[in-house]
Simulated assay, not measured.
Amino acid sequence: MTIETGAKLPAMTLKTITEDGPADIDSASIFDGKTVVLFAVPGAFTGTCTLTHLPGYLDNRDEILAKGVDEIAVLAINDPFVMAAWAEQTGGMGKIRFLADWDGAFTKAIGMDIDLSVAGLGVRSKRYSMLVKDRTVTSLNVEDSPGEAEKSGAAAMLGQLD
């Protein structure tokens, strides 16, 4: 079942890269008591994700944070090393939190998984964005197609923060 506005995100473990290498990070430490913009992409280094979706959040980072958001995070079903490389290559390291849903457990738990085997990607995340306040989803924007980044893009999210 797909998560809906008003629902709480599950407490689960994701992965991230630290100076000491890959590390587990509990979703509660990301979302509890905070206002977070979370957006998800089908895959790091893929076309729309790298050329449109992520750059929109990087370019609008300061404006989003100025509207009372504590943090912006991007999530993909990729390993933490890929997410770290993507952060480095795009200039996002230290600006946006890059979360690796390495086994897809978080994505499946919130019903945002999609089988993109036809494109050679396997099971991935749908493209979406959400505003999360104290682990509760207050807005949710899911794209109709994984190749689009309009509903879930930074401009759309900025409009929801006013």
Rank of each mutant, 00 (worst) to 15 (best):
M1P: 04
I3E: 06
I3M: 07
G6W: 10
A7H: 12
A7P: 00
K8Q: 15
L9M: 11
L9H: 02
P10E: 11
L14G: 00
T18S: 12
D20P: 00
A23P: 00
D26K: 11
D26F: 02
D26G: 02
S27Y: 03
S27T: 15
A28F: 07
I30L: 14
D32P: 00
V37Q: 01
P42V: 10
G43V: 09
G43A: 11
G43L: 09
A44C: 07
T50H: 15
T52F: 07
T52P: 01
H53A: 13
H53M: 14
H53T: 12
Y57K: 10
L58R: 07
D59E: 15
E63W: 08
I64Y: 05
A66S: 15
A66E: 15
G68Y: 10
E71L: 14
L75V: 15
L75C: 13
L75E: 11
A76M: 04
A76D: 02
N78L: 08
F81V: 07
A85D: 13
A87K: 06
E88C: 04
T90K: 12
G91A: 12
M93L: 13
K95I: 10
F98Q: 03
D101T: 08
D103M: 06
A105H: 06
F106I: 06
F106Y: 09
F106R: 05
F106M: 11
F106S: 01
T107R: 05
A109C: 06
D113V: 08
D113C: 06
D115W: 03
D115K: 10
S117F: 01
V118C: 02
V118D: 15
A119M: 09
A119E: 10
G120K: 13
L121A: 12
Y128D: 11
S129M: 06
M130G: 01
M130D: 03
M130L: 09
L131W: 00
R135K: 15
T136E: 15
V137Q: 03
V137M: 05
T138D: 07
S139E: 12
S139L: 05
L140R: 03
V142A: 08
V142K: 06
P146K: 06
A155N: 09
M157D: 02
L158H: 04
Q160E: 13
